[in-house]
Amino acid sequence: MFGEAFEKKVDEMVARYPQPRGAVMPLLHMVQEEEGYVSPEAEAWIAQRLGLAPAYVHGVTTFYTMYRTSKQGRYLLQLCTTVSCMLRGCDNVLEHIKQRLGIEEGETTADGTFTLVTVECLGSCGTAPMMQVNDDYYEDLDIERVDALLDALERGERPEPGPGPCRVLVE
């Protein structure tokens, strides 16, 4: 599955753990990186590779929110709405994104570009509100910054993430 380099990385992953089962989570991350989600076929393949039942692997997949069992938009917008972000205005940001994209939480734009979800605290509370786009953290958001970010993503660019948690430490 997914070619030779992938298989080699799988072998390396399995070797890291005292028992093969330990590699379930890293393998789920790896197949999701390849396909954008975890398909039943991928679960069956992992199960076979590690000597587990497919139902067991599916049980792990569905326990963790980061593993997705269906295809998402090209950009998965994950807006944090927990308390620190709420105190700094994430609800306005959420409303704005919904209006602009014409979708509700959990939905994907018709062209398949954006999927919007809200998530629980991502550890970016000093730079709230924030949104994770695929792997990247975009912080200190306001409506202007969100618009600039979405504009850039629509053009196929990847703006510099950040600014990260260290601002007051380097001042």
């Binding site: 308390v83 620190s84 105190l87 700094r88 509370c125 000093g126 730079t127 709230a128 948690p165 260290c166 601002r167 007051v168 430490l169």
Partner: peptide
């Protein structure tokens, strides 16, 4: 200390 919410300079302080 990680400070968030309604302060001027939220962030991590050692």
């Amino acid at each position: 200390y990680c400070v968030s919410g309604h302060v001027k300079r939220p962030g991590v302080y050692e």
